[in-house]
Computed example of a mutant assay.
Amino acid sequence: MEVTEATDLPLIAVVGPTGSGKSALGIDLAQRFDGEIINADSMQFYRGMDIGTAKVTLDERQGIPHHLLDTLAVHQEASVAAYQLQARAAIADIRGRGKTPILVGGSGLYVRAALDVLDFPGIDPAIRERLEGDLARDGKDLLRQRLTAVDPVSAGRDLDDRRLIRALEVYEVMGRPFSSFMPQRKYHQAAVQVGLGVDRSRLRERLASRVHAMVDAGLREEVVRLDSQGLRTGRTASRALGYSQFLQVIDGALTSEQAASDTIDATRRFARRQLTWFRADPRISWLDWEDPDLGSRAAEHIRQTFGLS
């Protein structure tokens, strides 16, 4: 297998919707370019969340080092700002050892935090706590009206409760709209992004099969174990696909069959949102996820883009 000198290569990123085969392509490219993987899936930061996040096993890694997996306990909150620092430190470390850094994942903002020029606004726990109280008392519609008055761009997005509060918090802390901090698609350092283009109907089928396989592999038991470690108290982990649904199974609110069906529906919606996010980035070069020569085509694209032999 041909190996290109790592020092000649930019940062490589493999992106696309969940279930499209990003992990496998990342490992393939790491073998071709003497690389190491940096995780950019926010739910794979969590120790013990293995089955429900389709985290690559040690055998599947084929000896390729993987960074930023299993960095958080389930009760801890993931932070894009913290991830940016960790990812860029990992990139520098990998390059410093003469290897090629390969970012792999489908968490769009985390990918851009690693790749793009992007500053993060400050936080204020006291303001956030007050806004959470306002939400509980006044409801989401009233808070959305408040956000519309100061940040109509953010208010126009389909924000969940957490992001709605964050947008209001940022305005109070920084005096600037949260939308003004959005990345401008300018790379922090030389990079190339490869996206996995999917057939949506076939992806829907694959995601359903994958959820059923997760259930058969012991997803419920994994959730029970993590529940004892504080899963419910985690702002981020408790909302993960499959985990929130199977917490309801533990509580008797859903059957396993209902939880699986709900997880399939939620995963499909998530995949659609991922595609919308990544398709908006014109810098991504899209390849057919089912191309039998996908690894070779991706490697050739990387070489041609940067004039590598």
Rank of each mutant, 00 (worst) to 15 (best):
I37L: 15
Y171M: 03
S228M: 13
E5F: 09
L254P: 05
A81L: 09
G19D: 08
Q229Y: 11
G63S: 03
A298F: 04
A89T: 12
A13N: 12
Q274T: 10
D50L: 06
A113E: 11
R202L: 13
T276I: 12
T18F: 03
S256L: 07
Q145G: 13
M182T: 02
M214G: 04
S79M: 10
G197Y: 09
K55M: 12
Y110K: 01
L135A: 11
R235F: 14
T53I: 10
D28I: 08
W277N: 07
T57C: 07
Q258D: 14
Q304D: 11
W277D: 12
W286H: 04
L168F: 01
Q84P: 06
E300Q: 15
R128L: 07
R144L: 15
I165A: 12
A87M: 03
I165D: 05
L143T: 00
S107Q: 09
I102Q: 10
A266P: 02
D151R: 03
I250A: 10
L287K: 01
G252S: 07
L29I: 01
V198D: 04
L294K: 00
V3G: 02
F33W: 02
L9Q: 01
G139L: 05
A280T: 10
S244R: 15
G139I: 00
G26W: 00
D160Y: 04
D70T: 05
D160V: 13
G295H: 12
I127N: 06
L68Y: 02
T276H: 14
L142S: 09
R144G: 03
R268D: 11
R162K: 07
Q86G: 05
V15P: 14
V80D: 08
L118V: 02
A136V: 13
M43R: 11
V173C: 02
F45D: 03
G96Q: 04
R185S: 13
G218K: 01
P10Y: 00
T233S: 08
G19A: 08
D291V: 05
